[in-house]
Write a protein that binds this DNA or RNA. Sequence first.
DNA 1: TGCTCATATTGGTAGGTCAA
DNA 2: TTGACCTACCAATATGAGCA
Length: 299
Amino acid sequence: MAKRPRGFISGYRPRGANVDLLAAVQSVLTMYQDQLPLTIRQVFYVLVGKYDYEKTEAAYKRLCELLANARRGGVIPFDHIRDDGPSAAAPQLFKSGDDWLTAIHRSANHVRLSPWNLQPRYVEVICEAGGMVPMLASVADPYGITVRSGGGFDSITAKHELAQHYARQQLPVTVLHVGDHDPSGEALWTNLSEDVGAFCQSLGADFSVQRIAVTKEHQQIYSLPTAPPKKTDKRSVWNEGDQTVQAEALPPDILQSIVRDAIEANLDLDQLAETRRLEQQTRDKLSAVLSDLTTNLDN
DNA sequence: TGCTCATATTGGTAGGTCAA
DNA sequence: TTGACCTACCAATATGAGCA
């Protein structure tokens, strides 16, 4: 029998300093309610910046454990915290033909057109941490832009498939990269840029990466919490005296605005407006066609 | 040149121990 | 009794150092 709690914890009562810590976490979640869900790392860095929370890996681990219990205990809503979960592939099933027709009708009202046949370049966002994807996607989605988690792109298959995907776009490809400002973050970015770039070159794709966050300038402008680079991490050239900054140290709203600005700088906004006009036209047309079809079937 | 080893990345969880 | 905290571990890969 496991000694750890399973399922919900009924009557969970945090103790000592954790009572105040959970109150601070709830304040952070309220402060960034428009950016929810946040990763525990994002909550951690806001606590460090605004509540003088201890900035150590041990303190971060304690926060992870506390938030696990707080979620099990119903103190923190599960949907306010984002972590990497399992993936599922569910078949698309319908109760009946009418059910399918209703679903089609409903989706026709939300059909979206790809903006890429009117844009000068294909743009994507890649972030290092998978937990940040939903938050960045809420910014990128209205532009029709895909957000991926890099996770270091540790799989050679993933890098090759990505290059194949970019080659199929038949447009110059720009990847906006969000990652940590540390030797490992630099190494991951360089690896992505070089390895996917080399595959792209062989496949005939014009590929470039823009590192949009986190930079040394961001650290200075927003006074972000830093840490000295780990002496054991030799994966990248690192200037003497330079401090490291985690991507999650950027306040969520600021990170969103950095990504939004970078997206808009790379898109033709007039052409994007034209795509949206065509999109509405298409929705109206499809709704009319499906209404006629439903009427004919009923008769 | 090629192999092994240590260390790093993410967001946790498991088990053991301590303390309120 | 129960919450807190510490260490070890998971997966797949990159990188640098050291050695044969």
